[in-house]
Amino acid sequence: MRFYLFLVFLCCYSSTFCQETYYNFQDDIYDEVRFREKLKSIEEIYSQQSNYKYTTATYKVRSTVVRQDSIIQNVEVVLSQSNSSPLDINTGVQSFINKPLPYFELQNLQNHIKTNTDYTDKVTLINLWFTSCPPCITEIPYLNYLKDTYEDQVHFVAITFDPKDKVERFLEKKPFHFEHLVDAITYLYRDLKNNVFPKLILLDKKGQVRFVENGVILSGNTSSQPEAAVVELKTQLDFLLSEK
Rank of each mutant, 00 (worst) to 15 (best):
I71T: 14
V61W: 03
V78P: 02
T91I: 12
E43S: 11
K164C: 09
L101N: 06
E139T: 01
K164Q: 14
F130I: 01
C11F: 09
Q26H: 10
T21I: 14
V8I: 13
L241A: 04
E43Q: 14
F25M: 08
L10T: 10
L233P: 00
C18N: 15
T131G: 00
Q49R: 12
S223D: 04
V154R: 01
L240D: 05
Q48D: 08
V75K: 09
E37Y: 04
D121H: 11
V230W: 00
D204H: 06
V182T: 14
L146Q: 01
K206D: 10
S70V: 06
L109T: 13
N108L: 12
L101Y: 05
F96Y: 14
L7F: 07
S82V: 05
L101P: 06
T124D: 03
N108I: 13
F130G: 01
V216E: 00
Y103V: 14
Q94E: 15
Q208F: 11
E232P: 00
E37S: 11
K40L: 12
R2A: 10
Y23S: 08
L188G: 06
V231C: 04
L233A: 03
D204W: 06
E151F: 06
T56S: 10
H180R: 07
F96V: 08
D88E: 11
Q110F: 12
Y142R: 01
P163C: 10
E105A: 15
D28Q: 13
E44H: 10
L125S: 02
N195S: 14
T58V: 09
K174P: 00
E243H: 09
L5T: 12
T16E: 15
T115E: 13
E179H: 07
Y142W: 04
H180S: 07
D183R: 11
F104D: 12
E44Y: 08
N144T: 03
R36C: 07
Q236V: 04
K244N: 14
R67S: 14
